[in-house]
Write a protein that binds this DNA or RNA. Structure first.
Lengths: 112, 112
DNA sequence: GTCTTATGTATCATAAATGAATCAACAAAC
DNA sequence: GTTTGTTGATTCATTTATGATACATAAGAC
């Protein structure tokens, strides 16, 4: 992330990133695909795939999701069909939300 | 994603990205946080948060996960404790995997 | 054991992600 | 109605993610 990368990531984010990397490697090995072969299939370089498998926070989410998709790893525990349904439902819901938030300052779940 | 952005994303990835953005906005509004307030809290700019909420595939996964974490959106449907457990389990499993894949070419789930 | 090949790591050039700033449009509160 | 302030969108400079390459190491097949 450009600009003086000073801010730290939460443990939760780091764990999720690492788990994602692990799942990807697991799936890749299970599919008997070499890093090079999978990278090529996704249109990315082997070095990027390597970073993804290591749980690098700096990889773009599109690359990570695409790799997961190719390997059949479900995102949000949803398959293609249900994901599409969930999305359209979510999009409808968006329309009902207030367009702008006023005040600010409100308590947020800090416990996780 | 640097380098001549030519490769297209799968529908699945795009849907997952958009859903993630929707969930984030929903949660932010529910928490009564302005985009500026949340961005500041995560150490990112409002413009980046805006792209994240739009489901931009080019955002780094670290930024997206961090925002989700702050909002209490569960990744992999796991809370902090269970995520940590799932991770350590996954990491142990990694050690048992073959270090290198031979052959290549194997069928992969292309149906989703 | 040898041979072949996948992986880990590092470096570098370049394309792209990010932050900052600006402005218009619109929604909420009054 | 007016006012205040959030959001959407754009542009630009800067920092960084990515791809390419090279190399050492190690693991699988024989």
């Amino acid at each position: 992330m450009p600009k003086s990368s000073t801010h730290a990531y939460s443990r939760y984010s780091l764990d999720a990133l690492e788990l994602m990397g692990n799942l990807i490697r697991e799936s890749r090995v299970a599919a008997n695909l070499t890093a090079e072969a999978l990278a090529q299939r996704a249109g990315i370089s082997r070095s990027l795939l390597h970073r993804i498998e290591k749980g690098d926070a700096g990889c773009t989410i599109g690359a990570v999701f695409e790799i997961a998709a190719i390997l059949g790893i479900q995102l949000f525990d949803l398959d293609a069909k249900n994901l599409a349904m969930r999305l359209s439902y979510s999009t409808e819901k968006q329309a009902l939300l207030p367009k702008a938030v006023r005040s600010s300052k409100k308590v947020v779940k800090d416990d996780f």
